[in-house]
Design a protein around this nucleic acid. Structure first.
Lengths: 304, 304
DNA sequence: TGCGGCTATGACGGACACGCATGGCTCGCA
DNA sequence: TGCGAGCCATGCGTGTCCGTCATAGCCGCA
């Protein structure tokens, strides 16, 4: 999609919305011919038909439906960028944008943020949750000033230009419905969950699940794709599946979920990641120090 | 940003990454002159300087930092779109994409999904959380097949072309740290929380908070901007602030948070939203019926 | 069967994007 | 302190691209 422009995407989006190339052309101030051509160029670039042509208008193909979903997001984001660039024109600084895997929001991140804002009362921090394969590129791309990431499989993505600060180890546990046949045990072997239905969504965590289950001799059946821990917990508690849960999250789980140690548990490392040029003397570096202090209270860390 | 293209955005992104127009030009296969001009055009379109020019390279301005964050997302999304369009070429259908405000993931959505997948075992559903002001445009744009939304202030956005199905009322409660001075009460008046620090993030919920506090005679001080309910709960439980919590979420809250009724509570309505042409005979319509059945178990609803 | 609605495509002209060349500024080194 | 190197901005020329106009073809309906 290197040569695709937002103009063609916008036209495609409007064609799908109105179900007609002519109507979209009128709405956008082009001729039907121009819009037809834009669509044809898009289809050539993406090497896939995007619209089914009928005598009375058009309908997206399945591939067109996929592009439509992305187009909506891209176009919306482009508008927001313009608005925010205009708003940022008068600012002297931008907030420190911190990203982290969701599991650290339950305990570690609030404690680190508290220490940081106490030391730097004028600082503004914006927090965004994400998964490691997304967070590191976002850090490198400049969207984030700091990211808390883990080395879940497939391991850390390439991170040239990034300084990693190890925060702690974090083993996985099994989260079972309270009435599960294995809930009465203290330690569970992963292979004993081969026949269960799994609750998982994030690409990183799903990969670790598949990898761990592969070593235990089975492929997990993930029927419930759920994005957040409230939802995950609800599905597990309601008996619709089991899942793996990082130790960092265990204290925050609802009481009607049975959390059990795994024999030989998959264990991840948790890191604070900064761009190498930001590794000293920057707000991101100060925040990393706060994270380290929160993760290892026994080490004294200065926030200067 | 109507005329801005991805080519200029890509160049800007690479210039920031390498800190040099010449280096970016070389990496992208352009001359320095072409890239310099692309940046100049971007700056003119966005009416803001985006780079500070130095003798040895460039650095983004604060406005440039803002654009860089968005550019990273847009460019990444564009790549994913191309990949997924290629992968979708052979598909006969796409998953039903369901969006909802996060509060329904804790109970209502898992129940509805269970009923739906029991009735349609071959169906694939992808779920994405969001806030109402984002969800309705995403529904209309084609990204979502169905969205569960609420009429938090500023109320529902314009929704021509959308069919709304009322699911239930949902009053707000106060969520307080367990040791809060008002935690011993059964009913709290919002004005009594005027001097507290607030935990909130989402634009919709923050607007309702500001609106409700305005009616109670004060402006809430939101020091902790936190995106997810695990984090919100952690900040409240740790004593760093109070927040409002929808009734739908109350059963899923951790036990060390004091949840209290509000006198005259702000109350929202919860709706399932579909595009009008999808209102009958589609997977989205069937899913809406499952949501209605889950929200009102006393009404019998057929999933045909 | 003819007409209207709609999409695809040929031909053409003007706008745009980029390369080459050059000017101006800053920085580092002898 | 002066010179050279590095780097960005901009004028000019050229080829490509984008949009318009016109036309052809298909489908559905009265």
């Amino acid at each position: 999609m290197a040569a695709v422009d937002l103009t063609a995407l916008r036209s495609f989006h409007e064609v799908c919305r109105l179900g007609s190339i002519s109507a979209a052309a009128q709405a956008l101030g082009y001729t039907q011919s121009a819009v037809s051509r834009q669509i044809a160029v898009l289809e050539a670039q993406l090497k896939s038909p995007l619209l089914r042509r009928h005598a009375r208008g058009v309908r997206p193909t399945p591939a067109g439906d996929v592009l439509l979903g992305h187009a909506a997001v891209i176009l919306s984001r482009a508008e927001r960028a313009a608005e925010e660039v205009a708003a940022a024109g008068g600012l002297q600084s931008v907030p420190l944008r911190v990203g982290a895997v969701p599991t650290v929001t339950a305990d570690l991140m609030p404690r680190a943020l508290t220490a940081y804002t106490a030391a730097f009362p004028q600082a503004r921090v914006v927090f965004a949750a994400g998964v490691t394969p997304q967070l590191l590129p976002r850090l490198l791309d400049g969207e984030l000033g700091l990211a808390v990431v883990t080395d879940y499989p497939p391991g850390l993505p390439p991170h040239d230009g990034v300084r990693l600060l190890h925060l702690r180890d974090d083993p996985l546990y099994a989260a079972l419905p309270a009435g599960h046949r294995l809930a009465g045990r203290d330690v569970v072997d992963l292979s004993e969950l081969a026949g269960d239905t799994w609750v998982e969504d994030y690409a990183g965590a799903a990969a670790m699940l598949v990898s761990a289950c592969g070593r235990a001799g089975f492929t997990p059946r993930i029927d419930i794709e759920c994005g957040g821990w409230l939802g995950k917990q609800a599905f597990v508690a309601a008996g619709f599946g089991v899942t793996l849960v990082p130790g960092l999250l265990v204290p925050a789980l609802r009481p009607d979920i049975a959390v059990r140690e795994l024999r030989d548990p998959p264990t991840r490392n948790v890191y604070a990641a900064l761009r190498t040029p930001d590794a000293t003397g920057t707000p991101a570096a100060a925040f990393a120090a706060a994270l380290l202090a929160a993760a290892r209270p026994e080490d004294h860390v200065d926030l200067a």
